[in-house]
Amino acid sequence: MATLKELSVRKDPLTGGHRACAGCGFPQIVRMVCLASKDPIVVVSATGCLEVTTTIFPYSAWTVPFLHNAFENAAATLSGVEAAYKAFLKKGKIAKKINFIAFGGDGGTYDIGLQSLSGAMERGHNLLYVCYNNQAYMNTSIQRSGATPKGANTTTEPAGKVKQGKVQRQKDLTEIMVAHNIPYAAQATVGYWADLVRKAEKAFSIDGPRFINVLQPCRLGWVYKPEETMSISRLAADTCFWPLYEVENGKYKVTLKPKEKKPIIEFLKSQDRFRHLFNPKNETILVEIQKEIDYNWEKLLAKEAK
């Protein structure tokens, strides 16, 4: 893996001056992924925090070619860019290698963009799709998404007198991508930057459709102090709330096995979105969440052992 020193002499895809919240987590995801590419890159983004904060006309924070089309179609849009590139390669109008990257939030990836993503993956385009997953529609004020975990407080499924935030579990998008039989799918989180950079590097070394699901704490929606973005992110992996793993040609590899699996309450209590769960009457929910995490973790380890 390239060292941080080596990465630091590459071209940062973003400048300062974008309007992401102080302490946001997605600009680092973008930087880590893009810096991992030795070759030039072209970026497409779904509508969402990333696109909105980095391209307020006439100020673009992008230093690399960037296209935004709409909310649900980043994968389809990038598949068109990639097809044009192939056409130009064939005609000898372009020669250099370019890596194609799409970024979408969890709304634009898990929910409204799932069909477009699935289609692009099935067609086998040579591109990397990265979901910066902050587990709700943060750009439009913290509405629930298919990625929102059980018990989280959101504005469209808030905690109240009779309901304790989201009732359902999050869907397992990484496994849905694995089920597309793509050559590379992975889960990462921004606080474990070395793991993410290594996964991005690996993704760029492989041809075909690739997917990385990156958990990104959001200080606005998760409600914590801005300096804690990276540390809370690591807590998600240390509690196995968000296991770090990769699946290369069907072969599972867990890339972080906490020496001592921390209890989930350590992660939950670090953010106000779960505060209501610590009301004594909600203890059963905490127990349930821990159980599910333990079950999923064992299941993942079993897949790796196969």
Binding site: V52, T55, F57, S60, T63, V64, P65, F66, L67, H68
Partner: peptide, 8 residues
């Protein structure tokens, strides 16, 4: 490098 489809 060009930014295409910026937010207005």
């Amino acid at each position: 490098p060009t930014t295409v489809g910026a937010l207005d």
